[in-house]
Design a protein around this nucleic acid. Structure first.
Lengths: 199, 199
DNA sequence: AAATTAATTTTACAATTATCGAATTAGATT
DNA sequence: AATCTAATTCGATAATTGTAAAATTAATTT
């Protein structure tokens, strides 16, 4: 097996990109269509497309680099033919949903959230002020709720102790956490727990 | 609204081309990867890609025109998400081998053959001279053999009469036609017929 | 050997397009 | 109403790329 990790910037990405670039041209797409009918010489292709031979040769070279066509020498002709397996392989494999996320650069933390946290959390991790905008407030609540362990129950007193690390107004925080379903409370008593994230 | 219908050359071709063009860019391919993870705002995407917001917006617009992503307004955000069905549909359907030939322009008659015929056949359809190159000579033979009906037997005399319309050297023509298996001859007698083309 | 032929490579240019900043639009907040 | 925020559109520029003519290469024919 190969080691792709070190210094190799996603060969799959490069390959996919050159595949799309190879086919992202009117003339080259038509060449694919021509070669799907039968293998042909460069001159023949250029006549069918109304292009000069040199331009056609250039296009064929690009398709060839992407592995979509290949040429065999026959006399002083180059007879190009379609690599149907390659074409099939690319169209089948590479755009499968499960492979797509790998195309992305490392996911960046949400810009909006970072902005809000920068604006309302001080260096000690405490909430400086409560934003009026609900969306921003929710960001803070999600930040706060991380202080609670999943699958653990807390008394109201314990909850308040933890919330006090963020802001003196523990009542509002506690109430909001429950309101927005980030924490759950058992009906009458003082039992709290972090709501399961999976919906 | 615009009228797209009239003079619309192969909508399938156009659609396929714009599909490939949409994905033939590094940044846009990465956007696909990002949106495959989760729907995101323009600002978030631009941060992940290291691009300006306006450039990102432009890329998203291109992807959107190709039908690969769509946006929903949420507050003053545009949350873009991936159209996975469309992506799946395109990658599955459109590059299937049986559809490929339709991408080509109307097939042009073979350039080499046309050249040879122009060079060696006069205005009356007669062979001006016999080319030394075997490949060219074969083109002439295939041209000549069309004067014979399929599934018909001819005597040697009839064959010579027909060949005389092309060139006085009927003996060479007759012999070459048989040699190259364009016509068949019954063992001893003088019965000739056009060889069936299907191999 | 000289001439011919098909293809590739090189060079130069025109067309396209990716990019960004500035201006504008649409929506939300104060 | 005035302000703020995210997104889009516009205008300009830089980079890419499709195109063809000319020069070169490779193979064949005379």
């Amino acid at each position: 097996m190969k080691e792709f990790k070190i210094n190799d910037p996603q060969p799959a990405f490069i390959q996919l990109l050159s595949f799309f670039k190879a086919l992202a041209d009117e003339k080259r797409l038509k060449i694919i269509g021509l070669l799907a009918q039968k293998p042909q010489s460069v001159e023949n292709i250029s006549a069918a497309l109304g292009l000069s031979v040199s331009t056609t040769s250039h296009h064929l070279s690009r398709l060839s680099k992407a592995g979509l066509v290949s040429a065999r020498a026959e006399g002083y002709y180059s007879i190009y033919s379609l690599n149907t397996e390659k074409l099939h392989q690319m169209s089948q494999q590479v755009l499968q949903p499960q492979n797509l996320p790998e195309l992305a650069p490392e996911a960046v933390e949400d810009v909006f959230e970072r902005k809000v946290l920068n604006a309302f959390i001080d260096a000690e991790g405490r909430i400086k002020a409560f934003p009026a905008q609900q969306k921003k407030f929710l960001v803070l609540l999600r930040y706060v709720v991380n202080a609670f362990e999943p699958d653990t129950t807390y008394t109201e007193k314990e909850v308040n102790e933890i919330l006090l690390r963020f802001n003196p107004d523990t009542a509002q925080l506690r109430r909001s956490l429950v309101e927005h379903h980030l924490m759950s409370r058992e009906g009458g008593g003082g039992q709290y727990w972090r709501t399961d994230e999976t919906p």
